[in-house]
Amino acid sequence: MTTVVKPRVGWGDLLWVAWRTHRTAILAMTGLTAAVVAGVFVLMGMTDTELGGLPAIYFRLFWQPQDTNLLFGAVIAVFWGAPLVAREHEARTNLLAWGQDVPATRWLAGQVVLLGAVATCLAAMVWMSEQYMVDTMRELSEGRTFTPFTTWYEVAPHLQIGYALFGLALGLAAGVLVRRTLPAMGIALVGFGVVRVAVIEWARPYLRPPVHTFEAWNADYKNQVPDYAMYVGSGYADANGVRIDYQGSWGCGDRVGSAGQLDCLKANGVAGHFAEFQPLERLGLFQWIETGIFVVLAAALLALAWAGVKRARRV
């Protein structure tokens, strides 16, 4: 009797299947990430004498840490997430993989855990290279003003991992919904870009209510936004510091630079300038809040994929 009976299909089995299925993709992505990371290390070491010994990659190529980030997450979404289930449907291998003694949801759990774990490790690798880049730049360019909220905001391991997991879940959900690899890849690419940029543009400045300051009309202009803070907004305000939008009908624009312009503005209730910003102390908090946003999005997309795989009104 050669029959082997086991009480349950364990994680080792599910992970072996996931590894064998995605071996090539995992090795290729790991190689690519390692090459990019090594490239950053090497290029950061290549300084530019014309720039007084500063790293050329940053100051000449304008290669920012977040560029690597955006690229990494998008590649995970497109090449790992999107084909995960879509390719099974295309090759009809879902009928094979889900027709054994393991429900489709457990099979999927094995796939997601393996790819998620590897993506987490690779994201950490990317973070290390970026951290090195930022540290080196700060060290070499003493006296230069950096804007932490743009230059190294995204250089945090948890944030990187959040982006990567979001990318994986987004691609997976797209593949579960459209069941075809190429369209799923397209949706994953566009979706990842749109969400990431939307969060940067419209969510990040308002993760906490911005600090609001007001300066009444004064002979000397005073910059209200402190160094290293994230600028959110500024403009005219009334005596209570409430924003007033300039109206063309006031006609103050005709008197640029003259004392009359000030009088014109005052006559229309403008009592001074306001400014809104996020102080540097909030950097760490913001990184964690944004991580939370992407982890919650990833969880919701995973749940969607789960339901889609389980429902099977169509195979």
Partner: peptide, 15 residues
């Protein structure tokens, strides 16, 4: 066949 062995509770490799 390894996939079959991994994903099933009962498996007869020789068969």
């Amino acid at each position: 066949l390894r996939l079959g062995a991994r994903l099933n509770l009962v498996w007869d490799q020789a068969r």
